[in-house]
Nucleic acid binder design. Structure first.
Lengths: 185, 185
DNA sequence: TTGTTTACTTACTACTAAGTAAGTATATTT
DNA sequence: AAATATACTTACTTAGTAGTAAGTAAACAA
């Protein structure tokens, strides 16, 4: 990948998280990078191609990170996950899912498929983590690991949305209570 | 309010929930209602004025509903709240907060204020409900009622987002587990 | 009956969006 | 040295967007 292409994707990622996929324009990318909008079309013929690349990169990042954690105890892996969201919270970012899900119906089929793949990937990883953690008595919860994974992802995702509206304390309160629910007693 | 004005607001509400505030256009309203876009500007000079009205109506609806429930036991009030979201889930709608929070930074100050007002209103109501319910031993949870209210709102909000991506089973799993956590044992 | 308000339409402006065709400079390959 | 591929720019099109100024028909008020 060329340097420009990398910069385009990185900036698009920021824009998706801050303004939303449909709300940012090629000018938001071309102006700060000091290139022409046609240069973006050279690397990504359509906006959906750029969107797919952003989601793909995010999935690669997620797999790289979870792989680095895989020998940690499950409760610490869970902590790592919340830390990822905490970093986003501090930067005023929302997560890709939180940004792309509201616009889901307006996305091209190729992008919809990528978003679904991402959602399934994250939920599956977390389900595994919870199941293993419960077996080792590091994590405690009622009900199916799958339902609990959905609940936790929901919380982290929406906590970033709520933080944007209600301020960063919303994230802190939610994340703390969440970890307390799962790991203490 | 004139009949047309009512129809504009009702359709705008639908559009905010399905496409997002920035993503719908005046044509999405004027075409189905068979009016001209200038007619919308007659009732709402700017798009933000329409947005404010949509949020205002939603808050009125919320207060009307919670008022109707106010003599029910708190666990049943909680059930009523999840039912509101369940109805949205079935219709493929997301909630206003879930739709407006991602675009929050792009909204006009007047609309931002309205969204914040709505968020605070819902969280405050739920906090009260949880506190009263715990006192009467109808609802069980650890930690502060305020943090728990944020968690529950997060879950309901994000469950609609996840349902859009992963299908309606996501909502069912989350809502069931949530009620089970709070009301059984 | 005249004047005014309500609820629009007609016809437009100014602007922005994604996308494209054709050209160009530089680097790489043959 | 010639041909080709890479990474763009220039200049443009098409199709929208919110918003506005001026006009109109009908209801209502003085």
């Amino acid at each position: 990948m060329s340097e420009t292409k990398d910069k385009i994707v990185a900036l698009a990622d920021q824009l998706v998280r801050t303004k939303g996929f449909n709300a940012f324009s090629y000018k938001d990318i071309s102006a700060p990078l000091e290139i022409k909008n046609a240069a973006i079309h050279y690397h990504f013929p359509a906006k959906a191609d750029l969107g797919v690349e952003v989601v793909d990169q995010e999935m690669i990042k997620f797999h790289t990170q979870t792989n680095r954690w895989k020998n940690l105890p499950e409760n610490e892996q869970l902590k790592k996950l919340t830390d990822v969201f905490r970093r986003h919270s501090r930067e005023g970012n929302i997560c890709l899912m939180g940004s792309l899900a509201p616009d889901f119906d307006t996305l091209e089929p190729a992008m919809q498929a990528k978003v679904q793949e991402m959602a399934a990937g994250i939920v599956n990883w977390l389900t595994q983590c919870l199941e293993q953690g419960r077996k080792k008595k590091l994590i405690h919860f009622k009900g199916a690991a799958n339902a609990r994974a959905l609940i936790i992802i929901s919380n982290l995702q929406a906590s970033l949305l709520l933080s944007r509206v209600m301020g960063p304390s919303a994230f802190r309160l939610i994340a703390e209570q969440l970890m307390d629910d799962l790991c203490h007693k």
